[in-house]
Nucleic acid binder design. Sequence first.
DNA 1: TTGAAAGCGATACCAG
DNA 2: CTGGTATCGCTTTCAA
Lengths: 344, 344
Amino acid sequence: MVQIPKTSAPSSPAQHSVPTSADVARLAGVSRATVSYVLNNTSAVRISEPTRRRVHQAAKELGYVPHAAARSLRAGHSRMVLMPAPDVPVGPLYSQFFNELQWALGRLDYTVVQYGSVGLQGDEAVRAWAELRPVAVLVPGGGLTPDGVAVLKRSGARAVVTLGPDSVEGAHALLMDHERVGHSAGTHLVAGGRRRIGVVMPQDTGLEVYSKPRLEGVRRAVDGTDASVTELSLAYDEGAAAQLAARWRSLGLDAVFAYNDEYAMLVMRALQDEGIGIPGDTAVIGADDLMLGRLLRPRLSTVHLELPSGRELAELVDRAVREPVAATQAYEVLGARVVHRESS
Amino acid sequence: MVQIPKTSAPSSPAQHSVPTSADVARLAGVSRATVSYVLNNTSAVRISEPTRRRVHQAAKELGYVPHAAARSLRAGHSRMVLMPAPDVPVGPLYSQFFNELQWALGRLDYTVVQYGSVGLQGDEAVRAWAELRPVAVLVPGGGLTPDGVAVLKRSGARAVVTLGPDSVEGAHALLMDHERVGHSAGTHLVAGGRRRIGVVMPQDTGLEVYSKPRLEGVRRAVDGTDASVTELSLAYDEGAAAQLAARWRSLGLDAVFAYNDEYAMLVMRALQDEGIGIPGDTAVIGADDLMLGRLLRPRLSTVHLELPSGRELAELVDRAVREPVAATQAYEVLGARVVHRESS
DNA sequence: TTGAAAGCGATACCAG
DNA sequence: CTGGTATCGCTTTCAA
């Protein structure tokens, strides 16, 4: 970081301590109770207009901001929905889904908080989340244990929802079985007459949650056919791709399913540079249906994913919070369908 | 969302109310104070080993998890670092930077929370952040006002750091002036003999924070030369790119700087499909130095960005928290340098 | 219509 | 070494 001090503004004025509702009350010449009534528009109690004005005026003057912790401590609950922040760089697909979800939950008056639990292991992380006493917890990507769910529930979470490959006892599950993705791709390749299928797996271990099921899906697709599957580990790196391409002919593969479109692009480029014809010599198919696939030549075949809409998930959460039902439910929400373009 | 209920597990056992330290004390047969001492390993006080064990045992049995709000209410401060969650899909560059930052702050024992403030306007959002009484606030992307900083400071934030184009009174600033990015690109194109430069601007208004300064940078680069700049608004969409390419010859441009490598790829593809030679007829340069640029043919020239390391920012935050200095400081932290490949 | 006071859960002082 | 207890900021009965 280049450190070039550029400005040196004068200090902010003396640090008065943080104003409380008591300060507001004092300044307005009323009791703390009245302040609370006015600021929360409590309908059960009617406050005279002049008093309201004085309170508002005082609050503004002091720059009063209520203390969320104190409030929810008193109330015994919050409207915080907690999600662990993903610790692996996550694609545009997920980002968009998440934004939508956040917006939808905001509309329902929940506050969404992404909690960075880097470095914490499993149930340790769960305890950290539980300390915040969120009303609901959304956990993407597997790894939550039934014990973890129990901790969250005991700490007051009215809804625990997992978004991942399998459902966890006690939690609602949005099943996103990426096995389907691989299965679609595999089926497509086999139907196209391919028999020796390579599957490109990211070396990045953080992506295994998705890549392994995708691989399994391909395996299932070729099961009972005379086709075979070869696992190919690959770093997201030009050099690694070139090395893979160099030994491609010796591998004797006639098709490759890449973890996603980005890896597909990487592999496709390397194969083309090696003089391997696509789809003639080797068919290539990716996944996630990213824009870039459409821009490649030949156009990249891919598996299009359908994620649940943020609005629907938000409603599920809201329902679960309002009436925690006896039985948790699991929904299969991942749609996968092949988009056949030119590379396969 | 396809809703296929798949499992229907039995309800979790009766909802006992959330266990408190008092419950632990009762079960262990000690006072609440003792529980606190044991669970926090308070060194000022020595507790007998048998008592410690009884307390730990009781806590485990009840599944006790401390209440963060109560704790920080009592303590008068928290170690929460708050960042508003970006509401526009943000690239891999930012994601990586953010992960690093999160990790580094975690090492320093801070808890990073991304707060979803979708739908809230300016100072309304600031008040929402202030309610959480974070010890530090990191605000990316401009839009924070001096008043906003004052609200945060008054609510107890010991450090307010902006990451954006300009510095704000009262806050530390990590200046990331994207004007430099455009300037590098523009200078490069002009030096290469290009005279009629198109600048591709995303239609997505959320990206204006970055795209406008980049455009200005190009303008500054051509200033005083005989080159000219043409602004080209473009949706991230194949059709839009094709339309742009169709009227390309009539535009009479001999170079284009795209907002980033993704837009560059989009434009380059459309131009190539239109039979326009790159870099012969038109030079193309992108920005952000994404992997995909290296995979294009011709290889995409780009502007490589150097962001501050997460570790350094974390240390800046920590310093600011520990000793809020009289003067806030501003650092220029965005490095930009052209990576000349084949497309320009 | 307003005020006094209890209490949410955890901590740290001060006695015992 | 351990236990009472005041306290953080806020909401909400209950009285006045």
